[in-house]
Design a protein around this nucleic acid. Structure first.
Lengths: 331, 331
DNA sequence: TCAAAAGTGTTATCCTTACACCCATGT
DNA sequence: ACATGGGTGTAAGGATAACACTTTTGA
C-alpha cells in the first residue's frame, strides 16, 4: 500500500507585470537575495501554486504578486505553460523538499497604469531593453544588432549545407539581416534563435557549462540573462502584447484615466518599439471611436498645451472593438 | 522525515485534433468505455503527463494521441492551461490512486490533412456542430440560435438592475441578438456565457445537481456535452483557429498537397463557419502569393474541371507571411 | 443543350500613406 | 520672436466590396 515513487510536479506561476516607466516599456523584477550578498540574475515575481488552497491560477497569482511586490494587478491574461526539461535549471528554492520536483511554469501577463514606485525592498522596475537590447527600433536600427548579426552569421556558417542555410534564413527573417523587414512581434522567436545559437547566457547555463567568454560588445548586445526560464516568459509576454495591441484596446490599461494623444502614441511606441506617423495614427484612432476628448488640457508638456482624452471603456460591452493600427514612420 | 501531506497535482494533456471531414470541421473524439455499456459523453484524446518520462509536453502529447487513436499529429500548438477547481468534476479515472488529485489540463490544438478514418475502436471524427450547433452560419443564422437567445433573454431578465443589463449586453454582443453583427471568433466567450447561464449541461453537472430538464428544442440547441472541461477546451481551440486563419497560413495544414481553390475556400468556410465571396477571396489570395498553380486539373468536381494548386510552403522561411482575409458573402 | 461548377472584368468606395502646413503656449 | 510640441488639410495609390458575365466540362 505504498505510494508510487512518482516524481512530484510543482506548478510555478510567473507574472510579467508591464508598465510604462520613463517613456520605456518596463517590467517588474525581483532580485533573489543571495546569502553571500553577491549579484545574481533578476527574475520575475513567481511563486508555487497550491492545489489545496487556490481555487484558480489567477487568484493565486494576484495574491502572491501583491505579497512579493505590494502591488495590485489589474488586467491579467495567461500566456503559456512551459514544461521543457532542462530549461528550468537553477530555480531551486521554491520551498522545502521540492528541489527534486519537475517544475512546470505558467506564465501570466499583467498590465498596470504608469508605474508607481514599488515599495517592496527586492522588487524594482526594469526597462525591458536591458533584457532585449535589439528590440527597440525607436531610434533606428539598434546598435545591438551589429554584433548579434555577425555572431548569427558565424553560427550559420559553422553548420554544413542545408542546416547552415536554414540557420541563415531564420536569422535573416527574424533579425532583419540584408534589408529584410523588421517584424516587431517576433520577440519570442528571436530570443529562441539566440538561445539555440548559444548566444543567450541561459543556453550555456542550461547545458551545465561554466560562464563563457563572449566579446564584450556581444555580451552587451545579447542582453542581461534572467534566472530560470524567465527571459523566455518575458519574451512571450512582449510578443503577445505587441500582437494584441493591434486587435484589442490594451494600451489603455497602461495609461492613467486622462491622457494626451501624444502620451498614448508614446506608450504604443514604447511597447511596439517603433515610431509611428503622428497624423495617420490619430486618424486611425479617430475612426475607431475609442477615445473621447475631455475638453480639458494638460499644460505641462512644454509647447502648446495638449487636450486630454479618456478611453471609452463602456464600448467593451457594447460592440466588438479592435485595437490600434500601427502606421509606421519610415526613417 | 515524512513527506508533507501535499495534495498531488496531475497534469493532463488534451488534444483537439482538427480535420475537414465531409466538408465540415471535425474533431477527433474518444468515447470512454463504460462498464455497463451505457452511453456516455464523448471526450478529447487525453492522458497524464509523466514528469519523469516525458521531456516536453508536446512529445508526450504526440505519443499518447498516436497510442489512443493510431494517428500521427502534424501541426501542433499549445492552447491554454486550465486549472479552475470545480470545472473538472468527473474526470476520475486518469490512473491508479489519482482520484484525489487536483487535475490541471493543458490543451493543445493539432491540425491534420483531410481525415483518414481512424482505426482505433473507440475514437471517431465528430463534426463540431454537434457540440456547438450555433456556430455554423454557412446556411444563414443557425436554427439553434432561436431557443438560445430566448433562454438568454429569460436569464438576463431574471437578474435585477445592473446585473440584468450586463447579462443582456453580453448576450447581445456574443450571440448577435437584435441585429448585432456576428463575430465568428468568439466561440469560447459564447460557450462560457452559456455555461454561466446554466444552459450548458456541464454547468449543471459541475454544480453537482442532477440532469435537469430543458425543453427539447433548447436541449438540442445548446449542443452535446463532453466529459470534464473538454468542451471548453474545444471552444478555445475553435476560437484560436478561427483567429489564426487570418494572420497565419494554417488552413493549408488541413488540405492535401494539391487542392482546388474551391476546396480551399470550402475549408476556410468550414472553419470560420461563414460563407465567403468567391472572387474577392481569390483576389486576396492571389495578392498573398501563397499558392501556385500546378497546371494540372481535377476533373472529379462535376462541372468544369478545376485547376490544382499547392501551398508554397518554402515562403515560411523566406518572409513573414500572413493568413487569408475573409471577404464575407452577405446574404 | 442544359445544369453545374470554374473562372474573369469592372467600378465605386474606403482606407492607407505621404506630403506640407498652421496653432498655441513658455521663454 | 522663436522654439516646442499640438493639431489639421489634402491628394495619390491600393485594398475591398459589390456588381454581372463567360468558359468548360458531364449527363
Amino acid at each position: 500500500m505504498t505510494r508510487p515513487p512518482a516524481p512530484t510536479v510543482v506548478i510555478g506561476l510567473s507574472a510579467v507585470v508591464v508598465a510604462i516607466h520613463d517613456g520605456d516599456g518596463a517590467v517588474l523584477t525581483v532580485r533573489p537575495r543571495e546569502p553571500g550578498g553577491q549579484a545574481r540574475a533578476k527574475g520575475l515575481p513567481f511563486g508555487p501554486f497550491d492545489p489545496a488552497g487556490h481555487r484558480t491560477f489567477e487568484l493565486a497569482l494576484r495574491a502572491f504578486v501583491t505579497e512579493q511586490t505590494r502591488f495590485d494587478l489589474g488586467y491579467v491574461e495567461q500566456l503559456y505553460t512551459f514544461g521543457d526539461k532542462g530549461r528550468d535549471a537553477p530555480i531551486a528554492d521554491m520551498g522545502e523538499g521540492l528541489s527534486a520536483a519537475r517544475v512546470i511554469s505558467v506564465g501570466y501577463l499583467a498590465l498596470t497604469p504608469t508605474a508607481v514606485e514599488t515599495e517592496a525592498p527586492d522588487s524594482e522596475w526594469s526597462a525591458w531593453s536591458r533584457f532585449f537590447p535589439w528590440e527597440d527600433w525607436r531610434c533606428g536600427p539598434p546598435p545591438a544588432l551589429e554584433p548579434i548579426s555577425a555572431a548569427l552569421r558565424r553560427w550559420s556558417a559553422s553548420a554544413p549545407g542545408a542546416e547552415g542555410a536554414r540557420r541563415l534564413a531564420g536569422a535573416r527573417l527574424l533579425f532583419a539581416l540584408d534589408g529584410a523587414p523588421w517584424n516587431e512581434e517576433r520577440v519570442l522567436e528571436r530570443y529562441e534563435l539566440l538561445y539555440e545559437a548559444g548566444l543567450a547566457p541561459e543556453a550555456v547555463r542550461d547545458r551545465g557549462e561554466g560562464p563563457f567568454a563572449l566579446s564584450e560588445a556581444l555580451a552587451a548586445a545579447v542582453g542581461e540573462p534572467m534566472i530560470s526560464d524567465h527571459r523566455r516568459i518575458l519574451a512571450t509576454a512582449l510578443s503577445r502584447l505587441r500582437g494584441k495591441l493591434k486587435y484589442r484596446p490594451v494600451v489603455f490599461e497602461l495609461l492613467p484615466e486622462a491622457f494626451t494623444l501624444s502620451a498614448l502614441q508614446r506608450a504604443v511606441e514604447a511597447i511596439a518599439g517603433v515610431l509611428l506617423h503622428k497624423q495617420n495614427f490619430r486618424r486611425a484612432l479617430e475612426r475607431t471611436g475609442l477615445v473621447e476628448g475631455l475638453g480639458r488640457v494638460d499644460s505641462e508638456t512644454g509647447g502648446r498645451p495638449a487636450e486630454l482624452f479618456r478611453f471609452r471603456r463602456e464600448l467593451l460591452s457594447e460592440r466588438p472593438v479592435s485595437g490600434l493600427s500601427l502606421p509606421l514612420l519610415r526613417e
